[in-house]
């Protein structure tokens, strides 16, 4: 079973994402802030991270950078979910090695489709 880490400081978003991922048959872990996220990434090594950018302590970019710069973690697929919609912000996300950058608010159906596609190759 693929493991997905959901990182967001908004409880309602966290709630809906957790529900969606479970519904689609993934193992879900949640982190409410950057610290928790880094901890979870190290300990649980998820296959994919749904990552918010604006968080109280460590921001999403820093977490992504950490994942991609670590040999052990670099195979983790990072998908940004952010309200930051400026072109520069999106570019920065991709430059840091994200597989996808999804702007908030997003369609849950599209999100699931993308997540499934991203996790497909290793499934077969």
């Amino acid at each position: 079973m693929k493991k997905i880490l959901v990182v967001d400081d908004d409880p309602y978003i966290l709630m809906s994402l957790e529900f969606l991922m479970k519904k689609n048959g993934y193992e879900v872990m949640i982190a409410r802030n950057g610290e928790e996220a880094l901890d979870a990434v190290e300990k649980l090594h998820p296959d994919l991270v749904l990552l918010d950018i604006m968080m109280p302590d460590v921001d999403g970019y820093a977490i992504c950078r950490h994942i991609k710069s670590s040999k052990k973690l670099s195979d983790i697929i990072v998908v940004f979910l952010s309200a930051k919609t400026k072109e520069a912000d999106v570019k920065k996300g991709y430059d840091l090695g994200a597989a996808l950058y999804i702007s908030k608010p997003f369609s849950t159906r599209d999100l699931m489709k993308s997540v499934k596609e991203l996790l497909q190759p290793t499934q077969s």
Partner: peptide, 25 residues
Amino acid sequence: LYTVTHELRTPLTSIRALSEIIHDN
């Protein structure tokens, strides 16, 4: 304006996600 729209996006995201879940389930 950017900040306002950004601030609006967060509740909107929750609302949309939650509504879609209820709708689809």
